[in-house]
Design a binder for these strands. Structure first.
Lengths: 198, 198, 198, 198
DNA sequence: AATGAATGAGCCTTCATTCAT
DNA sequence: AATGAATGAAGGCTCATTCAT
C-alpha cells in the first residue's frame, strides 16, 4: 500500500524538494549541502531530485527563486494598497518580519549571496531583487528631493542587509522588532530633515 | 637553480599562502577553494601548505584572522590619537576604505561570515571583531545619551556590513567614497538630533 | 551489455567485497591493503565499496567477522552432536582443518590479531572468539579435574594459535594433518594423566 | 651549547633510533609507524634517520634484528653451560621471561611476523630464528627417541608462540610465570612418556 | 653531524550524476 | 513515477624520501 504512484506528483515533489533544500541550507549554514541530504529530507531518492530539477545548481537556483518569490508576494499588496511613507514602513516591516528573520532563511540568503558572485543566473536573480527593492522604496520616497531619496533608499536597503548579517552571528539587535525599530528610527530622521515643514 | 632551500622560509611561506588564500577566495567567491589552488598560487605543493598550517580549516582560519588583524592594526592608532566624533568618523573611513573595499577582501568577509555560523572558532573570531567595533564606536559616542549611542553604534555597524554585502553584488553604492559619505550622512543626522545645541 | 544493473545486488556485492578483502590481505600479508585493490578484485569501484560498507575499517571489520562466523558455523553442529573428548577432538580438527589452514586465511588472522591490539571493536570480536573457544573446550573436558581442564584448554588453544603462526612463515609442521596430530598427541597425554584408570 | 657535534655519534644514534622504533611499534601496535614518530622519539630529524639507515624498511629490519640478537645473547650462555632437560627448561624460561613478555616486545614480534610474510629479508631473519630455536631444543631432547623429540620441540615452540599471541589480546594466561608453568607442564608429560624408566 | 625545506605519490573518502528497470 | 545500482572525478591529507646547506 505504500507505493501508490499518483499522477500530478510533480508539483508536490518539487515543492517538497525546495522546502527540504531550505531546511538543509539552514541547518548546514551554507550551500555545501548534498543532494543526498536534500533528497533524504524530502523523502525521495537523489535520482528523483535530478529527474525533476536537472542538477544541483538548478535545484538551488529554484530554491532561491522560491524564497524571493515568497518575499515578492508579500510586498505586492503593499505596493497596491499603500503609498508614501506608509509604503516604505511596510516594506521595512516585511523585509525584517519574524518570518524573514528565521535563522534558516537568513542562512539561505547569506549563502546565496555568496554564491551569486559566481553563478551568473543567481547573480541576475539577486540583482533583480535589489533593484526592485530600490525602486519600491524610491516610489515611497517621492516626497523627498531626488538625491535625498536615493540616499535614503540606499541606506534603508543597506541597513536591512546589515542587520541580517549580524543576526546570522547572533550578535547585534535582539529580534525582528528591534531591527524594525532601528530602521524606522533612521527613516524618521531622514524624513524630518528632508521635509522640514511636514 | 630551481631548488635553493634556505632557512627561515616559514614566515615567508605562511604569508604567501595566506595571500594566496585571499586571492583564491576572492576569485572563487566562496570558501570552496581547494588546497591545490591555494598552494599553486603560492608556488608550493599542497603538502607544504599542510605542513605549515595543519589542514585546510586551519589555513582558512589563519587567513581570516590575518584580515581581521590587518583591520585592527589600522584601527589602533585611531583609538590612540582621536576621540569623540572624529574617532567615529575615522572608524567609518577605515572600515570602508578602498583597501577594505577590494573585491577579494569583500568576498573573503562574506564567505567567512557564512562559515562562521558553523565553525565555532571562526564564530568566536567574528564575535570578537563585532564587539570590538561596537565598543570602539561607543567610545566615540559618549556625547550622546546612552540609548541613542547604542542605537547609533548599531546602525553604523549595520550600514557598514550592508554596504559590503551590496557591494559584493556590484549593486548599490559606487565606490568607497560614496559608501563613506552615506554612513557619514547618517552619523551627521544622529549627532544633530542627539546634541540639539551643538 | 556491460551495464545491466539488477536489484538485490547488495548481498552479492558485500560478499564479493569480503572475499576480495580476504584475498587481498592474503596476498599482501597485512592489513595495509588499499580499497582500490579490494574493489578492483571484486570488480567494482571504490565508491561502491564505500557505499556498502561505509569505510575501510568497516569493511575490514566485516571481513574478520565473516571469517569468525564461518568458523562458528562449523563448530556449532559439533557442540550439538558431540560431547566429552570427541567434542574436543572435533574442535581441534575444525580449527586446524585445511580450510582454516589456507594461507590467505592465516594471513588474515594474523593481520587482524595485530590490529586488534588497537581497534577496540576488533579487540572485542577476538576476545569473544577466544572466550568461546575456551568455554567450548572446557565443556568437553569435564572428565578432568577443573584445574587440569583449564590448563589443558589453554594449552590446546595456545598450540592452535602457535601452529598458525609458524605456518605463516612456512616453517614448522607440514600440513593440516600434521598440525592436528600434534595437538591430538598433547591431548592424549593430558587425558592419560588426568584419568589414570580410563 | 646545545649543538655540540661530537664524533662517534653514529652508534649512539643508531641505537637510539632502534629503541625509538621498538617503543613506537609497541605503542602503535603495528608496523604502520611513521619515520617522523620514530625520529621524534629519538630526538632527531627524519633526515638523520634516513642518513643512518637508508630507509624505513632498513630501519625496521635493523630493529627486528636487534630484538632477535638480544634474545640470542640470552640463549648463548645456556647453550654453553647447560644440557639435557635443563637446557630445554632454560630456553623456555628465557623465551617467556618477563622481559620478552613486555607488551611492546610482543607487539613488535607480532607485527614483524606479519610483515615477514612479504619482506624476503625479514622472512629469512625469522626462519633463521625459528630453526635455531628448533635445533637448540632438539639438542636438549637427545634423551628422547628422535620422532618424539621432533614432536616435542615443535610443540614447545608452538606453545611459546601461541602464548604470545593470546597475551597480545590480554587473554589467556596471566603472566610470564603462568606461561612458563604451562609449557613446563607439557614438557614434564612429554618426558614422562618418552623416558619411562628415568 | 645534522636539519629545515620541500615534494610526489598514493590513499581514503565524498558526491553529483547516470542508467536500466 | 521512482529508485537501486554504480561510477568518475576530485579533494584533503599523510608520509617516505631527497636535497642543499
Amino acid at each position: 500500500m505504500k507505493r501508490m504512484p499518483k499522477i500530478g506528483m510533480e508539483p508536490i515533489r518539487r515543492r517538497a524538494l525546495i522546502d527540504a533544500a531550505i531546511n538543509a541550507i539552514g541547518e548546514r549554514g551554507a550551500l555545501n549541502v548534498t543532494m543526498s541530504d536534500i533528497a533524504g529530507r524530502a523523502g525521495v531518492s537523489t535520482a528523483l531530485a535530478h529527474h525533476y530539477f536537472g542538477g544541483k545548481d538548478d535545484l538551488l537556483f529554484a530554491t532561491m527563486r522560491h524564497i524571493l518569490t515568497q518575499l515578492g508576494n508579500e510586498i505586492r499588496p503593499v505596493m497596491a494598497d499603500l503609498s508614501g511613507q506608509n509604503r516604505v514602513r511596510a516594506i521595512i516591516a516585511i523585509n525584517l518580519s519574524p518570518e524573514q528573520f528565521r535563522p534558516e532563511i537568513i542562512a539561505a540568503w547569506l549563502a546565496f549571496y555568496v554564491e551569486a558572485r559566481r553563478d551568473a543566473a543567481l547573480g541576475r536573480l539577486f540583482r533583480i531583487y535589489v533593484r526592485r527593492l530600490h525602486s519600491d522604496l524610491m516610489s515611497g520616497l517621492s516626497g523627498l528631493p531626488r538625491p535625498a531619496a536615493i540616499r535614503t533608499a540606499r541606506a534603508i536597503a543597506a541597513l536591512i542587509d546589515g542587520l541580517y548579517l549580524r543576526r546570522a552571528l547572533g550578535e547585534g539587535v535582539e529580534d525582528s522588532a528591534a531591527a524594525i525599530a532601528l530602521v524606522e528610527d533612521y527613516f524618521d530622521m531622514a524624513l524630518a530633515r528632508g521635509t522640514p515643514n511636514a
